[in-house]
Nucleic acid binder design. Structure first.
Lengths: 107, 107
DNA sequence: ATTATATATTGCAATATTACGATAATAAAA
DNA sequence: TTTTATTATCGTAATATTGCAATATATAAT
């Protein structure tokens, strides 16, 4: 196996899990934190700052982009990766709804 | 490789990522949602409700327990798994701090 | 045009995760 | 005490993720 049985869950459960999953790696947390401290951010900054190979950082950036949390614009010969604030707020709100709807009723 | 280089990140980054990661599977999202609808919850309920094998559910419960989001009490010959509300609120607050501290300054 | 710089993609090795059947462990019921 | 019911653990197969070197791609600078 090794494959998640997504079919047996509803869309909201799969979506929520996907957001959590993308944020579930320290490199991606670190990338978001670093970007939020800078006014502009290119991949090479991250490679030095974080200490993973360029290919690895690029891969993590791709995943963050895939769920819309980052957007990237070409800026001359480098890239400007930025947090997509609308998406960011949206996701935060989704996650809070999940947290608020999950309550303890026993023990 | 395949192994996350945790050493190069700080404790907070690793902790945050770990919480996100544990929540990053639809089965675990579904388990938390189901528990929050019930007054008591045992593993067998979940097996029927979710549709994964008993061994698999048990494994997911273990992971949720490992980060303190669930606590389990023996109740006769079955278990009562409950959300650890203090921990739950704590984690929600941590995640919100992360979201609020991560801002866009460019693009 | 050639070179230098920055990022993306490919291919691969190592490890992790998901899932399940089989089995163990534990406690209530008969 | 044997059976039944419930959950945990072990072993294993399949797939996913992480990470990197090598290479491709694209743009700026020379």
């Amino acid at each position: 196996m090794g494959i998640t049985k997504s079919q047996i869950f509803n869309e909201r459960q799969n979506d929520l899990a996907q957001f959590f999953k993308v944020l579930g790696h320290p490199a991606r947390v670190a990338i978001l934190q670093h970007i939020s401290k800078q006014n502009s951010c290119i991949c090479n900054d991250l490679v030095e700052e974080i200490g993973l190979a360029q290919a690895t950082i690029s891969q993590h950036l791709k995943e963050l982009k895939s769920v819309g949390l980052l957007k990237g614009e070409i800026e001359g010969k480098s890239m400007c990766y930025c947090i997509n604030i609308e998406r960011w707020t949206e996701v935060q709100s989704e996650l809070n709804t999940f947290f608020n709807n999950t309550k303890s009723n026993c023990c």
